[in-house]
Amino acid sequence: MATDYVIAKQVSKHFGHQQVLNQIDLTLPAGMIYGLIGPSGAGKTTLIKSILGMEAVDSGTVKVMDTVMPNRAVMAQVGYMAQSDALYETLTARENLTLFGQLMSVPKIKLAQMIDYAAGLVDLTSQLDKRVSGYSGGMKRRLSLAIALIQDPQLLILDEPTVGIDPELRQQIWTELNKLKDTGKSMLVTTHVMDEAERCDYLMLIRHGIALAEGTPAALKQQYAVDTIEQVFLKAGRMQDANDGNR
C-alpha cells in the first residue's frame, strides 16, 4: 500500500504567547513506526492532538486517511492511547474494553473476539474481570494500549506507550507493534526514552515546537556523526540553543 495515513503540512499552534508548534511537516505512510522524540513540553502531545482533530491548529492542515481533520467519523479508524491512563477505575478491564469497543462501533458479534485479541496482545487475559482500581501502573498502561487496539485500526497514535512498563513487557509490546506494522498498520509513537527511539523506522526530533531533525535512526546518527540517538538529540539541542543565541 502506498497511501499515506497522515499528512500534516505547516502545522502551527500557540497557547497564549507560547509557540507550541512551529510549521511542522509530518508524513506517515502505511506500515511504518514513526517516532516523535523530544523533551517534556516540546509539543509532542499537542501535535498528536492536532492530528486527531481534538486541538484546533492556528495554521496549516492535517489530513488523516485522506480526510481533512478535524473529522469525527475518521476517529473510528484511529486507535489512540493517551499519555495519562484515562480509564474507568470502578469498572473491570473487560467493561472498559467493551465501552470503548461500542463507542468505536465494533460490531456486537466481533466485540468479544476483539477483547480477547487485544487483551492477549498486552498479556491481560487472566486479569480481564478485575476492577481497574486494583491494577498496577503497568497494567493500566497495557489496558490503555489494548483499548487503542479494540477496533483493529489501521493507524495507532500512542502517546508515551511504555511509561511505567517493565523492560520485559516493553520488549513484548515492541515485538507486537512490529507485528502490527507487518500487517500494514502504521504507528505514531511519542517517547522520551532514547533506546525506544532506536526501534522506530523514522524519527522526528521536536524541541520548543520546532522539528529539529528527521530521518531514519541510522541516517540521523550519520548526519550528526554520533553513535546513539541520545547524542543526536543532545547535539541537535545544543545547535538549536546556539542558533537562538545568535538571533
Partner: peptide
Amino acid sequence: TTGTLSRLLATPIR
C-alpha cells in the same frame, strides 16, 4: 480531571 472525557472524545462519539 482523569482524562476519560478527553479519551471519550477521541472516539467518533458525538
